[in-house]
Simulated assay, not measured.
Amino acid sequence: MGLQPRLIDSHSHFDDQRFDGDREAALQRAHAAGVTSQIIASIKAEWWPRQLQVCRDYPGLHPAYGLHPMFVAEHQRSHLEQLAEWVRQERPVAIGECGLDLFINNPQPQLQQFYFEAQLELAHHYQLPVIIHARRAVEACINTLKQFPGLHGVFHSYSGSKQQAHRLIEMGFSFSFGGPITYERANKLRRLVQSLPLESILLETDSPDQPLSQHRGERNEPAYLPLVLQTLAQLRNEDPQQIAQQTRCNTEQLFGLGAPP
């Protein structure tokens, strides 16, 4: 039996209050499952201090700061100034998650666009990758990114087309996949992950959201990432160890992480 793969959860919200009761135990479960590190993506300014503290308390957690498009009604323009200050002081591994979400009620697309572009400008200035949330908005995100040549990053929980994916690869972007690929009815998504180059794929859980089919209805957590790996390996008919090694390398390179010990 081979060694347990070492994995990085490239998109987690481990600072979420739903982990407050058992965060230490959840982290131990993740480590036992081979998940050595996590990228902790942001939601809104109000939660940045809590996110910072959790990342300081637990080694292997790397923060990204940003303003999530689903919470556009709660963002204020002053939060962009605060974000710039947080980036200067804390030197996160990325900006995000940011992007566009045209699925939510009252999406206020112009306001979402304003915050998205402002965060892309910040990422461009500090030469940081961006973590992008795009729901029913992949083409709009592509058109926006064209205004910022040289940016790179990842489309988290990507749900666009194969053609859009290859355009994004040419622009320097990768894609992270998690629980949704474990559902047998997700035919389009499962075909997509079979066809993309492995060099453009990252693994994620989006904990505590997007539970896997094996844990439907439960709180998601980073310890379940090996099930994402297993599903991806089965869909691609490739060696899980090879996928683990390549996706870990992809994540380390994108976010500027050192190799885990």
Rank of each mutant, 00 (worst) to 15 (best):
R6T: 11
D15T: 13
R18K: 11
A25W: 04
Q28R: 14
H31N: 14
A32P: 04
A33Y: 00
Q38S: 06
K44M: 07
E46V: 03
E46W: 00
W48H: 06
R56E: 14
L61K: 00
P63A: 10
A64I: 03
G66K: 10
L67E: 01
E74G: 01
W86R: 05
W86L: 10
Q89E: 11
Q89P: 00
V93Y: 00
I95Q: 09
L100S: 04
N106A: 15
Q108I: 04
F114L: 09
Y115D: 07
E121L: 12
H124T: 06
H124Y: 05
H133I: 13
I142R: 12
I142C: 11
P149H: 11
Q163Y: 03
Q163P: 05
Q164I: 12
R167G: 05
R167H: 08
L168A: 02
M171G: 07
M171Y: 09
G172C: 09
F173T: 08
F177S: 02
Y183R: 12
E184I: 10
E184S: 15
R185D: 10
R185I: 05
N187L: 15
N187T: 15
L189S: 02
L202F: 03
S207A: 10
Q210H: 06
P211I: 06
E218R: 15
N220M: 12
L225R: 02
L229C: 08
T231W: 00
Q234D: 13
E238L: 14
Q242S: 04
N250L: 11
T251C: 15
T251R: 03
L254C: 14
G256E: 02
A259N: 10
P260Q: 02
P261L: 08
